[in-house]
């Protein structure tokens, strides 16, 4: 194998997001390796959209993603967990009235 081949095999990783239909949210599909964004997009199409699974694709350098940490998930998401008043069920409506 050429030294060139070695270098080329270590292309950066790109995370792939697909939109299944217009109006739907983008969803993480997987990842591809590619030398640049344009090729990452083409590789993503060939790997994750061979059967019309996507109407749009995003590719993002994996190194650009910052994720929450599972070990801190408890305290990190805590602010959202104890606020029942953010849900409609918290409020009492008079009997017999249609609110929605």
């Amino acid at each position: 194998m050429s030294t060139n081949g070695l270098a080329n095999d270590t292309w950066p990783l790109w995370e792939v997001f697909t939109q299944g239909a217009h109006g739907e949210p983008f969803e993480h599909a997987g990842s591809v390796h590619a030398a640049d964004a344009e090729l990452a997009l083409q590789n993503a199409r060939d790997v994750y959209a061979r059967r019309g699974e996507a109407v749009n694709l995003w590719v993002v350098p994996s190194s650009a993603i910052t994720a929450s940490s599972p070990s801190d998930a408890g305290p990190f998401f805590d602010p959202g967990n104890d606020k029942a008043y953010r849900h409609p069920q918290f409020y009492v409506a008079p009997r017999g009235v249609r609110i929605f």
Partner: peptide
């Protein structure tokens, strides 16, 4: 498998060269 990998080396090299040039 090795032959296919080696035969594809020029494609990978071309993709690399292009990316470097764009960079």
């Amino acid at each position: 498998r090795n032959k296919a990998h080696d035969d594809g080396a020029w494609v990978r090299a071309a993709a690399n060269a292009y990316a470097e040039k764009q960079n």
